[in-house]
């Protein structure tokens, strides 16, 4: 039995194929930015080929993420909240809190004893506390996103960034630079600000261990450290934080197939239509 999960996020599309033993056969990450949307299905296609399989061999395909609604080749669509919960549970079985920082939104998910979603929170239509915030500000600073962690590691303190509005924060960063603040401490301040925003949102759920941070920005060790400091507990990061949603989708697919959920009779390997 073979199951696929496809997580179409606002900036990246992620695909995972697992077998009946929940072993990952292939995983792939590709872009979904505005100009790459039509490519979402290619990511699926390449993943299938990478696994040396044919598309027809897949028993169940679950789509998730922002672009999940109109996926012509998926059997079912499930929100990324449920998928992350399932994916993380497979990697870290004792997880109680998941902090997912996405490109366009952030989420906090609380799991119950059974490892399913007990409650969740999402940030509010605003770049603050998301990967986008880091992208914008790192551009202002002329730093590559991937360098943020290294740079912040040099900081001895941090400069407080009080504005969480991305536009205001950009101004603020510029003024702090003009006042002579060190870049390392500004970057540390940014991590501090995002961590504050995200952790505060998640506090609403009642934080218990184990805490897992996932999503693309979880690759930034500086940010993860700032989150851990705020949480006051050690936090875990999956080896491949990008793909936990897709993995969860694939694993949920196995469950659906077991329960004989209705399959999409007209699966077509075609472009995904995004809703407005």
């Amino acid at each position: 039995m073979l199951f696929a999960g496809l997580d179409i996020g606002s900036t990246m599309t992620k695909a995972v194929i697992v077998d009946g033993n929940e072993k990952i056969l292939a995983a792939l990450v590709g872009p979904t930015g505005a100009e790459h949307r039509h490519l979402a299905f290619q990511v699926m296609d390449e993943t299938v080929r990478k696994a040396g399989l044919s598309f027809e061999a897949l028993d169940f395909i679950v789509a998730t993420g922002y672009g999940r609604i109109n996926v012509p080749f998926a059997d079912k669509q499930v929100t990324e909240i449920t998928c992350h919960a399932r994916g993380i549970r497979a990697i870290f079985p004792g997880t109680r809190i998941i902090i997912d920082i996405g490109g366009q939104d952030s989420k906090g998910i609380k799991l119950n004893d059974a490892g399913t979603v007990a409650n969740f929170v999402m940030n509010d239509k605003c770049a603050a506390g998301t990967g986008r915030f880091l992208e914008v500000i790192s551009e202002t600073l002329g730093i590559r996103l991937s360098d943020l962690a290294l740079i912040s590691a040099e900081a001895e303190g941090f400069v407080k960034i009080s504005n969480m509005c991305t536009v205001f924060a950009e101004h603020e960063v510029t003024s702090r630079l003009a006042e002579g603040a060190r870049i390392a401490e500004i970057v540390a301040g940014l991590h501090e600000a995002i961590a504050g925003r995200v952790v505060n949102m998640v506090r609403h759920l009642g934080i218990e261990k184990d805490v897992v941070v996932t999503g693309g920005p979880a690759k930034n060790a500086g940010l993860v450290k700032a989150i851990a400091d705020k949480v006051g507990l050690p936090v875990w990061v999956p080896p491949e934080p990008f793909i936990t949603g897709a993995l969860g989708a694939a694993l949920l697919g196995k469950g659906f197939a077991k329960r004989n959920a209705t399959r999409n009779q007209t699966r077509r390997m075609e472009s995904v239509t995004f809703f407005a």
């Binding site: 009080s162 504005n163 969480m164 509005c165 205001f168 101004h171 603020e172 510029t174 003024s175």
Partner: peptide, 9 residues
């Protein structure tokens, strides 16, 4: 709420 204030603006 200082988060709504922008000194430079």
């Amino acid at each position: 709420d200082l988060r709504d204030y922008s000194e430079s603006q």
